[in-house]
Simulated assay, not measured.
Amino acid sequence: MRFKASIQNINTFTKLTASLNSLGPLAWVKLSDEQVCFTIIPEQGTQVWAVLSIDAIFETYTVQSAANNVINLEVPLTSLNRALKSALNATSAQIRLTKKDNQPLLALTIMTTSSSNSYAAFPTTGGNVNEDDLEQIPMDDGLRGNRETIITQEVPVRVLGPDTVAGLHEPQCREPDVHIILPPLMQLKSISDRFTKLALAGAKAGAGVGTSSRTRLEMAANMHGCLKMSIRTDAMSISSVWTDLNNPELDPSQVAGGEIGIAEHPSTRMKQLGSADGRSEEGWAIVRIDGRDWGKVMSVGRLGGRVIACFCHEHALILYVYLPSDNGEDESVLTV
Rank of each mutant, 00 (worst) to 15 (best):
M1Y: 06
M1A: 14
K4R: 13
I7F: 05
K15C: 02
K15Q: 11
K15L: 12
L20H: 05
N21L: 11
L23K: 09
L23H: 06
G24K: 06
P25Y: 08
W28M: 11
K30F: 01
K30W: 00
C37H: 06
F38Y: 12
E43V: 05
E43S: 12
Q44N: 10
Q47E: 14
V51Y: 08
L52W: 05
L52A: 05
F58G: 02
T60K: 12
Y61G: 04
V63Q: 03
N69W: 02
N72P: 02
N72E: 09
N72R: 05
L73K: 09
N81G: 03
A83W: 03
A83M: 05
L84G: 00
T91A: 10
S92M: 09
L106I: 09
A107R: 14
A107M: 14
L108E: 05
T109V: 15
I110M: 15
T112W: 06
T113V: 13
Y119S: 02
Y119T: 04
A120N: 11
A120V: 15
A121R: 13
P123G: 07
T125I: 08
T125C: 03
G127C: 08
N130S: 15
E131Q: 08
L134W: 04
Q136G: 00
D140L: 08
D141R: 04
G142D: 07
G142P: 00
L143R: 03
G145C: 01
N146V: 10
R147P: 00
R147A: 02
T152H: 01
V157E: 12
L160W: 01
G161H: 03
D163I: 11
L168T: 09
H169C: 02
H169G: 06
C173I: 14
R174L: 07
P176N: 08
P176Q: 07
I180R: 11
I181A: 14
P183W: 08
P183K: 05
P184G: 07
S192Y: 00
S192V: 15
D193Q: 14
T196E: 03
K197L: 13
L198C: 08
G206Q: 14
V209D: 07
T211Y: 10
T211F: 10
T211M: 11
R216D: 07
A220R: 13
M223Q: 15
C226I: 06
L227M: 13
L227G: 06
K228H: 09
K228R: 15
R232I: 09
I238D: 10
S239V: 00
N246V: 15
P248Q: 01
L250V: 09
P252H: 04
S253R: 14
A256D: 12
G261V: 03
G261Y: 05
G261C: 04
I262R: 02
A263W: 01
P266E: 07
T268A: 09
K271N: 13
L273W: 02
A276P: 01
D277M: 07
D277V: 06
E282Q: 14
W284H: 04
A285P: 04
V287M: 09
I289R: 14
D293P: 07
D293T: 15
V297R: 04
G301M: 04
R302Q: 15
G305N: 05
I308Q: 13
I308S: 12
A309W: 12
E314T: 10
H315M: 13
L317A: 03
L317M: 08
I318P: 00
Y320T: 01
Y322I: 02
Y322A: 08
N327C: 04
E329H: 07
S332F: 05
S332Y: 07
S332R: 03
V333A: 10
T335V: 10
